[in-house]
């Protein structure tokens, strides 16, 4: 993947497929340049056996094809910077994928276009709620679809005008964020 934001899009789709109603996407950068990505959901969860095998490229729930590369690609992106990945999951409760990255490493994949990733996720699953936070020392970008829904009422999130507003809303926040790694 050319951008970390593409890994985020790909792995967060797993939460959508797991039937999660609420999905957290957090990117937290500390003052030492360590980035922690957390994708948390209240979807169907996985058994310990499945969790163990999910980072194996040759494990997938798909029945039409026998390879699943989403989590292994994220793991590779984290480990090549000296970071790591951790998956906590419980059947019926949900799953949390945590990956850490050293943004100072030359092998750190740039974060890229998180605005496109979040709008794509919301368009693809307008019936779910996303909580998005990207924070670094002194700056923050946030989006809560729950808060948007309070304003929108019955108007769905995937209306083009609403998606355009969300895109502008996030882009404006990123303009004040001072660029990403």
């Amino acid at each position: 993947m050319k951008e970390l934001s593409l890994n985020v899009l790909d792995v967060t789709e797993n939460s959508v497929k797991a039937g999660a109603k609420n999905i957290d996407v957090f990117l937290i950068e500390d003052e030492k340049g360590i980035l922690t990505l957390t994708i948390g959901d209240n979807g169907c969860g996985m058994t310990p056996e499945v969790v163990k095998s999910v980072i194996d490229p040759f494990y997938t729930t798909r029945t039409t094809r026998k390879v699943g590369l989403g989590v292994p690609l994220l793991k590779m992106a984290a480990e090549q910077t000296g970071g790591s990945i951790d998956i906590k999951s419980e059947v019926g409760v949900g799953t949390t994928v945590t990956a850490t990255f050293d943004t100072k490493s030359i092998d750190f994949t740039p974060i890229g276009d998180m605005v496109a990733t979040m709008t794509t996720l919301i368009m693809g699953a307008p019936d779910r709620d996303f909580e998005y936070i990207h924070r670094k020392p002194g700056a923050e970008v946030t989006l809560s679809t729950i808060a948007l829904r309070e304003v929108l009422g019955d108007v769905p999130l995937d209306e083009p005008e609403i998606i355009a507003w969300i895109k502008d809303y996030l882009t404006e926040q990123y303009n004040n964020f001072g660029g990403t790694n």
């Binding site: 593409l6 899009l9 790909d10 789709e13 590369l69 989403g70 496109a116 990733t117 709008t119 794509t120």
Partner: peptide
Amino acid sequence: GMATCGIAAGARPVLAQFV
């Protein structure tokens, strides 16, 4: 198509363009 294969090959900007 927005699975791992599609995303890695550049589907996100294609989707955005159609939208």
